[in-house]
């Protein structure tokens, strides 16, 4: 495995995925920006990120479970082709790619809803006190 340096792995991925590598990288960047934005909004609203994190984790685990059964099909194989722990580990690792996307999206949506909900509640509370 010593010849699998980051440069080599990058080139192999680049040749394997073609334009999809850049689409995946762009998507990963966009999700990272979204996660950062949602986390900042939660902080500004003084809300704990625990609830969006739990929701994201649940969504990620469910997506991993579903895709673990679908990944063999992507390689012209059936689920019965998985033979032993190493195969399952790799199927799970590959499933974590779509799972990561889903989990990130859930965190962003839940985080923003949570933050804006708090903002609305605070506004209503201030309005009620003034009124």
């Amino acid at each position: 495995m010593s010849d699998f340096s980051p440069v080599v792995v990058f080139y192999i991925l680049s040749e394997s995925l073609g334009i999809w590598l850049w689409i995946v990288l762009a998507l990963a960047l966009a999700l990272l920006v979204g996660i950062t934005y949602a986390a900042l909004r939660l902080r500004a609203a003084d809300r704990s990120p625990a609830r969006p994190l739990v929701m994201a984790a649940i969504a990620g685990v469910l997506t991993t479970a579903i895709f673990t059964f679908l990944v063999p099909g992507w390689s012209h194989a059936e689920i019965s082709a998985l033979n032993g722990p190493v195969d399952y580990v790799f199927a799970i690792l590959f499933s974590m790619v779509p799972a990561g996307i889903v989990a990130a999206l859930v965190f962003i949506i839940a985080g923003l809803r949570c933050a804006s909900g708090m903002a609305r509640t605070s506004k209503n509370l201030v309005g009620a006190i003034k009124g």
Binding site: I12, E15, S16, W74, S75, A77, N83, G84, D87, F90
Partner: peptide, 20 residues
């Protein structure tokens, strides 16, 4: 040992590695 991960390398990994 017959493994899916070895098949995966053949079916999905080798072409990219070859071109690289």
């Amino acid at each position: 040992k017959e493994q899916w991960v070895s098949w995966l390398i053949e079916e999905k990994g080798l072409l990219g590695a070859y071109r690289a």
